[in-house]
């Protein structure tokens, strides 16, 4: 078979040669033309409060398969706590735990304000979070019920940055649109985990409204 692709060795060498170059360029531009984006871009409009996303990426302290199994077990051991808690919180559309690489992740779609949502969690299944916090890198002080503010700050710091609007409007102070690609690079440099967009099959409805409309009692 004829191929125009360079060999694996050439690809490997290319990556090693170009990536340090890009890394240096990013370091240079980071200082030369830093981008500032609001760290808490949590809303685009006052009425935009339903079906918000939380993408919690929590690096495990022990990233080996043994450590990952410990995380899986901690989640499995708390199914009742989690399901009952989510039912009581009432504002959750979806929530799931994933192990991705060396991270324990919790992805969810909820209505209303993130901080209220997290506080409701602390109150209904704080013990689950306490158990999980024993497994993650640089955990906040526990129990979370006695340190709710620190816990919420920690969660917000581990929630993926969300790009909610279009890219140009993220950088209203950029005077040259040719620099927008660089601004995106520098934004990503600040945020290892980023939510790029979202879609909903039934936008503009709360979880309780869906339950009411589908006849399963809100």
């Amino acid at each position: 078979m004829v191929t125009t692709q360079p060999s694996k060795w050439v690809q490997f060498l290319q990556s090693k040669l170009t990536q340090p170059g890009e890394w240096l360029l990013v370091q240079y531009w980071k200082h030369r033309a830093p981008v500032t984006t609001p760290t808490w871009v949590w809303k685009t409009a006052p009425g935009d409060n339903l079906q918000q996303c939380m993408n919690l990426v929590m690096p495990l302290a022990d990233k080996t398969d043994v450590g990952r199994a410990r995380a899986a077990k901690a989640v499995a051991a708390n199914v009742d706590e989690i399901f009952t808690g989510l039912n009581n919180v009432g504002t959750v559309h979806f929530a799931r735990f994933d192990l991705i690489g060396g991270n324990l992740c919790m992805f969810s779609v909820y209505d209303g304000d993130l901080e209220n949502y997290l506080r409701d969690f602390i109150s209904v299944f704080g013990s689950v979070f306490d158990a999980l916090m024993e497994l993650v890198e640089a955990p906040p002080p526990t129990p979370c019920g006695l340190h709710p503010e620190a816990f919420i700050d920690w969660i917000i710091a581990h929630d993926a940055f969300q790009i909610t609007g279009d890219v140009p409007s993220l950088f209203p102070d950029e005077g040259n649109i040719a620099n927008l690609p660089r601004d995106v690079v520098l934004l990503l440099e600040q945020h290892p985990n980023v939510q790029l967009g979202r879609y909903s099959g039934y936008p503009g409805k709360s979880a309780a409204q869906i339950r009411l409309a589908t006849g399963i009692d809100w």
């Binding site: 506080r119 602390i122 704080g126 019920g145 006695l146 340190h147 709710p148 503010e149």
Partner: peptide, 8 residues
Amino acid sequence: PVEDVRWE
């Protein structure tokens, strides 16, 4: 008033 929660 929130069970098991105290503000710092």
